[in-house]
Design a binder for these strands. Structure first.
Length: 311
DNA sequence: CCAGACGTTGTT
DNA sequence: GTCTGG
DNA sequence: CCAGACGTTGTT
DNA sequence: GTCTGG
């Protein structure tokens, strides 16, 4: 399942990170960022994004400018949790849970199938997502932060994401983003103002993730998958769905339960914590003593090295 | 015909 | 228990 | 997803 | 809005 994400990049950093190969120009281009009304709310970078928050989402430029070239992309801020198209009144007052959309239900769904068939495919951009372990019953529900494997030892070919981006203002590099397949919809309020909203598609977990949770988001692991999911003009719905598979190229670590409260948005939310010492410090105080002793030892070594360097 | 669902999760 | 807010 | 409310009155 | 159930 996917009910919390993190994305700390600002608009410009994000445009940079979402560069893609434009086939007609044969070069990498940044998607343009088109702000929407969205009830006056804007995207704000956060390490703890919850449903109803506004986050940037990739869509095919064709969905908005019919004359644009195939494959061109646009970034749009949208609200997490689709507002049903038939809904009237306050956009928050629909009673459905729409932050996730089960892939096995889309085809028969009164809500999602018309959206899918009208080309409402989008890609949710994040640095990672949070998952609370439900497979084992422990005293506390342990949260984990999950993200793409940050493996840059392998060569990056034309089909892969560019891994760095430089602008005059900022340098942002060596971080692989998490791209999730989703469905989006444009809803009009009583004054005919547009609110864009989305739902993250979920799948049954594979062996990589099932130890943690039985569901996981539909993660797009390579450039071809992103391209295919966004290209609503040339890739039919059924075929696009068939490309959504449980991802394997993932990495994770346990995080503090401060992430439980969505009011806490700081970088502490995705910081790695040591579960071993947490358990052992309460059960085996000696282990903790050895760890501290080792730490003292390594600190001495560091001091020794720095003394060497100075000489 | 009208009423009611339309969605997901986790837990018992 | 169930709904709303973040 | 989790946390937190879940209610009304009258007075400052 | 549109479909299903009664």
């Amino acid at each position: 399942m996917c009910g919390r994400t993190g994305l700390s990049l600002d608009k410009e950093q994000l445009r940079c990170a979402c560069r893609y190969r434009d086939k007609s120009l044969n070069d990498y281009v940044k998607p343009s960022y088109l702000t929407e009304y969205n009830d006056g709310k804007e995207y704000s970078p956060s390490f703890n994004i919850a449903p109803t928050d506004i986050t940037p989402v990739l869509v095919s430029a064709r969905n908005f400018q019919k004359d644009s070239d195939a494959g061109q992309r646009i970034l749009k801020p949208m609200m997490w949790g689709i507002i049903p198209p038939w809904h009237k009144g306050d956009y928050k007052s629909h009673k459905l849970t729409t932050n996730n959309c089960r892939i096995e239900n889309i085809r028969y769904s009164k809500l999602y199938s018309p959206i899918l068939n009208n080309g409402g495919r989008c890609v949710i951009v994040a640095e990672g997502f949070y998952e609370w372990q439900t497979t084992i019953k422990t005293k506390i529900k342990q949260p984990y932060y999950i993200y793409m494997k940050q493996d840059f030892t392998q060569p990056v070919d034309d089909n892969c994401q560019p891994t760095s981006c430089h602008t005059t203002e900022n340098v942002w590099e060596n971080k692989r983003l998490l791209y999730m397949a989703g469905l989006y919809n444009v809803w009009q309020d009583s004054e005919n103002k547009n609110i864009y909203s989305y739902s993250v598609i979920t799948l049954e977990s594979n062996e990589v993730m099932s130890w943690l949770h039985d569901r996981m988001p539909a993660i797009l692991e390579c450039e071809q998958q992103i391209e295919s999911w966004l290209d609503v003009d040339n890739v039919p719905a059924e075929k696009a769905l068939s490309h959504l598979l449980p991802a394997k190229n993932l990495e994770w670590h346990p995080v503090s339960t401060i992430v439980n409260n969505s009011k806490y948005k700081s970088s502490d939310c995705n910081k790695k914590i040591d579960l071993e010492s947490k358990v052992k410090s309460s059960q085996k105080p000696l282990t903790e003593w050895f760890k501290k002793a080792n730490k003292r030892k390594s600190e001495h070594e560091i001091d020794h090295d720095s003394v060497k360097r100075k000489l």
